[in-house]
Amino acid sequence: MSTPVPIPRRKVTVRIDGTERAAAEGSTILDVCRDAGVEVPTICWAPTITPVNACRVCVVELEGSRTLVPACSRRVTEGMEIRTGGDRVRASRRMVLELLASSVDLSRAEADILRWLEEYGTDPERHGPDRARVSEPVRRHDELYVRDYDRCVLCYKCVDACGTEAQYTFAIAVAGRGFDARISTEYDVELPESACVYCGNCIGVCPTGALIFTREFDLRESGGFDPEAQAVTTTVCPYCGVGCNLELHTQDDEIFRVTSPDDHEVTSGHLCIKGRFGFEYAGGRRREGRTEADPATDRDESSSA
């Protein structure tokens, strides 16, 4: 396979924290920072999704701008003078993280988010014991995935993955307004009544564990979730000829999550219902009328006993 040659783009010169950097026209401040090895925290950004710049944790200082600007979506122009550190930037990032932590449960968030909560010195408890919090029942309605909106930071990634960024299904959207805004189907109907096709691409992009495989949810709720006993196996989906790469996340040889690499040129991280959820057969334990001994299954049962 030949390597595609990108269309040449003009270079612009910007300064990041005092150091001059050349960047391709059209790239974002975030792109340039990452190329330069400068860490900029992000929550609502994803490599495969057009930025919505809703979380505002990626803000940086831009010379000449009255307010901070979102690094994830602001495109660089010639001569930009950008500061990614400093008290002003850190103050807003800390507050964004703290406000999120004060309103939703971030305990299952991505490791980076948990690290930033520490690094930026957030203190959600100072907002008082009676502060408003997002309070939603856990929606565990089937064996495929769970929606636990107490953990939702409204990053819009699931909505975009369900819609124009991946699936074009449009089963969910943001409903309500302000602090009462929630991810919802129309009239909050249950998923089988909605347009949902169970591709699970919303789970694939969720950064906080609000959308989660039912198996993983049950493992975590039971206290049996054990990263030490886990492995990731890369394979190819067996269902059709497209050849989507799969990453099977297993604990004690039991699949609890299926992902696809964001940089995979076929999937861009997105799958369909078969690749995402069609792994029941792999364990083989539910096969009816099984007559022969199955060493793998037998070992599973003995280890979980």
Partner: peptide
């Protein structure tokens, strides 16, 4: 502001609520 924030960005969605709570306190 708590009622009229659209809810899109975190500083305003949560910040207007926390500001209102602090003034009520």
């Amino acid at each position: 502001f708590r009622d009229e924030s659209c809810g899109q960005c975190v500083p305003c969605r949560v910040g207007t609520v926390r500001q209102n709570e602090a003034i009520v306190r």
